[in-house]
Design a protein around this nucleic acid. Structure first.
Lengths: 422, 422
DNA sequence: GTGTCGGCCGTCTGCCGACAA
DNA sequence: TTGTCGGCAGACGGCCGACAC
């Protein structure tokens, strides 16, 4: 593996190294992934970070790992920088974040803005995602484009030609160009990518079950999307605004194969766990910056959470055993659906190591029988309790000194001591 | 990348996971690489380990990395386990070592055995290594086997056939089978691998400049090698003992391309350095076992050294500025040659972080003009001073309390306090 | 609407000795 | 002794519509 392309979240267009498109990154990362904004305050969970390392190295943290006494279960930090990356060899997306723990004085001076809540990731509107079939990846033929997808995302064909065909140029996460012959033929008629497709499949080492996604993108797309969302759309409305063939992006998402990542031959998994704890502990002790990687498709849960989202979920939401809730999950087609469940317990997930951590403090049972796929423990900020009023007093120890002021959710300008942070 | 095959050094044959051949591993690692024996005492250098991580992540250790006060510049350890591995995707070889720092009492009780000196790696005798040419890796043809190589390593052909040909079966580091058609044809006659060769080249992603090596191996090979080394050999002597076609092994060595390894997307390089220091410091504080990876082709120098070799080089060899020395290097053809140089200085390479470390304490100048390829700093145990008697008193601070007893190199049974270890 | 297949053509793989370094 | 090439034959890549689900 080699150094990846990168993009600072704040400058999606300019800069000589800004070859990584933010919308494409988010499309590859999936609809549930959101990155906190640069400059905002966040909560970092060493426990969740450790979970990602455990999954990536395929090895649980050693039971004999010492407690890092100086490292609290959660660190309140300012997020100084976020860059999006993609592995040069696998196209795996990940983010690099520079965090700086706040000292006591800085924590007192925190003021919140609603934006800090961390809105759901903006998935590009003009895009499609298709899971590759055996025929798509076979050397025998090309790629069968779903009709609606082609009409929505690809530049319109000139139907006066027989057969209608054009050359598509799409750019991947590394800004590499891929050219495809797009043709509309067959009986019944269908959209196909022929010449160029097999080169792409073999270069990216795609297999049946992996997904490919195309985005139509330009700098006005956000504005245009809002306009388009406001009314009914026909394919020629899309076609009218898609006159620049060079604005096509494509990304891949590999199927969840068992053991996607590996234990690096560089450092033992134990040393990696030591590394993240020691780096965080050092940063916490000196209030200095440190760097972490977040791999959205490897990590079971986000472990850098907007502070406001955390405060709201932990200190201003009453939950109790027996309460019903919903939680978002990604579908195979890259959209979201809600699964329902019941809270069966509230307790620290690892009281020996991380006392009073809120990480995965909620034990849950899932309604559907395929529940084995979903985590038996979740964090408060991941779920939507179905009652907005407290049915039972929460048995979970809250450090909240004062109740949440009426008139939710306006807490802009609140001070930290009003929220029980210290 | 995925989990690799592994082999415990002590059980090259048995065990369900012992699919990695020790001789093949050493052949791929190169002639200069030796692994200390299991159970022996070694010196571990965090500084050298950090160097390997810096090379692997392509990023130097951060200047703001804190000093790990409790971590000395060298740790005396017992080596509890060594396993050899190969990366599943790249076939890159590496070793996993389990080290346990010795407490003060254990250090006093150390007794040495001559074997602890760490003999040079035993390269298999019946093997060959060839750097691939453009023709070898082209899809246009097969692999041209050097004549002597084929006669030495491959099973003998039946020359009554026209043309003489056979099927070779060779196993790689992961015990995968590769089949090749071996034929002796052309004008002039030569040995070629045809059918099966291109599959191997594309599966291993070999390019011109990479090397491939074949070993003829069986459990008696060490004994046989000694017999063979004692006299002159002709090809039919080899042929007589190579009657089992399934004993053929093959490995690869990739050319040194710039930026071979990459910054993992799992952990920042800073955290990796923290990790190795914290893991070692924790192990040193508690005298508990810890695990490290040694990648012989990534690391500029070995950082786990047999204790006896270290003692001999540091405490019982007089060196001084101006002294001439030789040092072994690997050639492109996988043999060794000596380069000569002059000692230009003796000092700590990083006095701020690692005071009184002997790691790369010798500044050197190299005789040949291509000297830029070689390290400007080496460690005492890497070089052979050309004078066996001290010409000048060493300016380097020796902690030796008593002089080395006369009658080198017999120090079996010596106690640590006689060698200035404490 | 789209996944897979048989048919068909063209390119490239891959085996051969020639030849030269 | 061995690296590269021209020649050649066959395999496979890859484009097409047919057909079924």
């Amino acid at each position: 593996m080699k150094l990846s392309a990168c993009l600072n979240q704040q400058s999606p267009e300019g800069g000589e190294k800004s070859c990584l498109n933010s919308e494409l990154w988010h499309a590859c990362a999936g609809p549930l992934v959101s990155l906190p904004s640069v400059g905002s305050h966040v909560v970092y969970f060493p426990q969740g970070h450790s979970e990602q390392v455990a999954v990536s190295t395929n090895k649980e943290v050693d039971a004999e790992m010492p407690n890092y006494q100086s490292l609290p279960a959660q660190l309140i930090c300012q997020l100084h920088n976020v860059t999006m990356h993609a592995d040069m060899e696998t196209d795996e997306v990940y983010a690099q974040m520079t965090l700086q723990p706040l000292n006591a004085q800085e924590q007192k001076e925190i003021s919140f803005h609603p934006a800090d809540l961390g809105a759901a990731s903006k998935q590009p509107t003009i895009y499609f995602c298709k899971t590759l079939t055996a025929s798509d990846t076979s050397t025998h033929g090309g790629f069968s484009v779903p009709r609606r997808a082609a009409e929505k995302v690809f530049p319109p064909l000139d139907f006066s030609q027989q057969p209608p065909a054009q050359e598509l140029v799409a750019r991947d996460l590394h800004n590499n160009e891929w050219k495809f012959r797009h043709i509309f033929r067959g009986q019944p008629k269908r959209h196909l990518l022929t010449t160029g497709w097999s080169v792409f499949v073999s270069a990216k080492r795609l297999v049946a079950g992996d997904s490919v996604l195309f985005i139509w993108y330009n700098t006005f797309s956000r504005t245009l999307c809002k306009i388009l969302e406001s009314g009914r759309l026909t394919w020629f409305v899309y076609a009218l605004i898609r006159n620049d063939k060079n604005q096509l992006l494509l990304g891949i998402r590999r199927a969840n194969r068992p053991q996607t990542v590996m234990p690096s031959s560089v450092l033992s998994s134990d040393s990696m766990h030591h590394g993240l704890f020691a780096a965080a502990a050092h940063a916490a002790a000196t209030y200095s910056r440190y760097t972490i990687f977040y791999n959205p498709r490897a990590s079971p849960s986000e472990f850098v959470i907007p502070l406001a989202k955390y405060i709201k979920a932990v200190h201003h939401t009453r939950v109790s055993v027996g309460m019903r809730f919903r939680m978002l999950f990604e579908t195979e087609e890259s959209s979201v659906r809600r699964y329902m469940g019941t809270i069966t317990g509230i307790s620290d997930s690892d009281p020996a190591r991380w006392l009073n951590s809120h990480w995965r403090s909620v034990k849950v049972g899932w309604d559907e029988s395929t529940a084995g796929e979903r985590q038996p423990r979740v964090s408060l900020w991941e779920i939507e309790p179905l009652t907005t009023f407290p049915m039972y007093p929460s048995p979970f120890p809250l450090r909240l000194k004062r109740p949440w002021p009426s008139g939710l959710p306006s807490y802009s300008g609140m001070k930290a001591d009003e929220m029980g942070l210290n």
